[in-house]
């Protein structure tokens, strides 16, 4: 697996732990959502940097009180056609104000990078051999969007009226 973040390929500092592997203080670890909720008391008090992997159908709002403690939330795509993690990403960014890394895992493919980026994802676990260049090409395919998005892009109507305002001056 390779990791693309901020348009470049980076080495992944995180391990994704099985539910029975102990979390070590010096290894940034992503645990499953179920485990996090079950062992929450212990995990939040541990010294390890923590991430949680959330599968579609699991409710990210249950993580709300611990968001400041979490560096990474990995939202999974068991199949790229399962779009529930897009909603989870937007809820994390726009409703819960999560500012850490939202990582796309699972069936993460080139033609969905842009949707993911606009929904609030900022890192992408991709197959080995996928180059950052391809990610950059994919997210630059459009210059304008009809919706405002959590990644900070404004909707086309904001540009339209800025443009009209500028033209009127």
């Amino acid at each position: 697996m390779a990791l693309i973040k901020n348009g470049t390929q980076v080495s992944d500092q995180w391990i994704t732990a099985d539910d029975d592997t102990p979390v070590q203080a010096d290894i940034p670890t992503i645990v499953s959502y179920k485990r996090f909720l079950a062992e929450r008391e212990t995990l939040v008090r541990s010294r390890a940097e923590l991430g949680v992997k959330v599968s579609p159908g699991e409710d990210v709002t249950a993580l709300e009180r611990d968001l400041a403690r979490l560096q990474v939330i990995a939202l999974d795509f068991p199949k790229f056609t399962d779009g529930r993690s897009y909603s989870a990403a937007r809820i994390l960014r726009q409703r819960l104000g999560f500012e850490g890394e939202i990582r796309a895992t699972g069936d993460v493919l080139r033609d969905q990078y842009l949707f993911m980026q606009r929904a609030g994802f900022d890192s992408y676990e991709v197959n080995d051999g996928v180059e950052a260049r391809q990610w950059l090409d994919a997210v630059r395919e459009f210059s304008h969007y009809y919706q405002p998005a959590p990644n900070g892009t404004s909707a086309v109507w904001a540009r339209r009226h800025a443009h009209l305002a500028a033209a009127a001056e």
Partner: peptide
Amino acid sequence: RQWSSFHPEFSFL
């Protein structure tokens, strides 16, 4: 039409 085109959340319903 505009709102729903290439919607970042609702393209894989």
